[in-house]
């Protein structure tokens, strides 16, 4: 949702591969999945057992979920898309505020802005072109507990 790519309006139609970055942005209800080979990402986040009816999913909390947030192409692609939503203006503070609103649906607090500004100064020299400061920041924010857990 934060990447702005979730298509909620498209109903019906053929299923799609949920991990396809170009075409997979629909609810998993519309996923085409091989029961014998469930993608690791879906398994890691407790997708319901596809072989039977399930009235309630199990909930687990495991480090492999953290690994997905840190290193998976799915999350990295989403982070790039979030960063692309930021307007082109160069004012760092307003970009931070915009990012906070996209990811956390609130404004950043003063000390959060400061934390991030310091981080950006440190990181600017270290980053690669392929995954620059803003996508990295987006990924970091999406990995926080505040983003991942509604409670």
């Amino acid at each position: 949702m934060a990447a702005g790519t979730l298509e909620l309006d498209a109903r019906g139609g053929p299923g799609m591969n949920p991990l396809d970055p170009d075409n997979g942005a629909r609810r998993t209800l519309y996923s085409w999945v091989d029961r014998q080979d469930v993608p690791g990402v879906l398994r890691t986040f407790d997708i319901a057992n596809l072989d039977t009816t399930v009235h309630v999913r199990s909930t687990t909390l495991v480090p492999q979920q953290g690994l997905v947030m840190l290193n998976s192409p799915l999350v990295i692609d989403a982070a790039k898309k979030v960063a692309n939503r930021l307007s082109d203006e160069s004012n760092t503070q307003s970009r931070i505020e915009q990012l906070w609103r996209i990811v956390f649906a609130r404004s950043p607090q003063r000390d959060e802005i400061q934390m991030v500004q310091e981080w950006i100064e440190k990181s600017e020299g270290l980053s690669s072109d392929d995954f620059g400061v803003w996508p990295q920041l987006a990924q970091a924010l999406m990995s926080t507990a505040e983003f991942q857990y509604v409670d």
């Binding site: 991030v116 981080w119 990295q136 924010l141 926080t144 505040e146």
Partner: peptide
């Protein structure tokens, strides 16, 4: 660096 920012926010 990225991880530590995330951890600080957490």
């Amino acid at each position: 660096e990225q991880f530590e920012l995330m951890a600080a926010l957490d």
